[in-house]
């Protein structure tokens, strides 16, 4: 039965990591504009600077 305890702690840890990642995404403003990036990636001639969403603070 000990194996279940090990498995559960692994699964919980992974789940918590994902929750943390979600929190990080939310903070960095990834959900503020959900339309423009979808269009931007299709432009042939892309502006050379990389996405700067996370620079905003």
């Amino acid at each position: 039965m000990n194996i279940i305890i090990v498995l559960i702690s692994i699964s919980l840890t992974i789940a918590l990591i994902f929750l943390g990642v979600f929190y990080w995404n939310l903070k960095s403003g990834q959900y503020e504009d959900t339309y423009t990036p979808s269009v931007r990636m299709l432009f042939d001639d892309k502006p050379k600077a990389s996405s700067s969403t996370d620079k905003k603070a």
């Binding site: 503020e32 504009d33 959900t34 339309y35 423009t36 269009v39 931007r40 432009f43 001639d45 502006p47 600077a49 700067s52």
Partner: peptide, 27 residues
């Protein structure tokens, strides 16, 4: 529209002093 985003993000081609421009369409 899409063209608006494209043009405004290529603003640096019209005006050299522009370093980078980024559109938020919804807002």
């Amino acid at each position: 529209c899409v063209s608006c985003i494209w043009l405004l993000e290529n603003l640096k081609k019209i005006e050299t002093g522009v370093i980078h421009s980024e559109v938020n369409f919804t807002r």
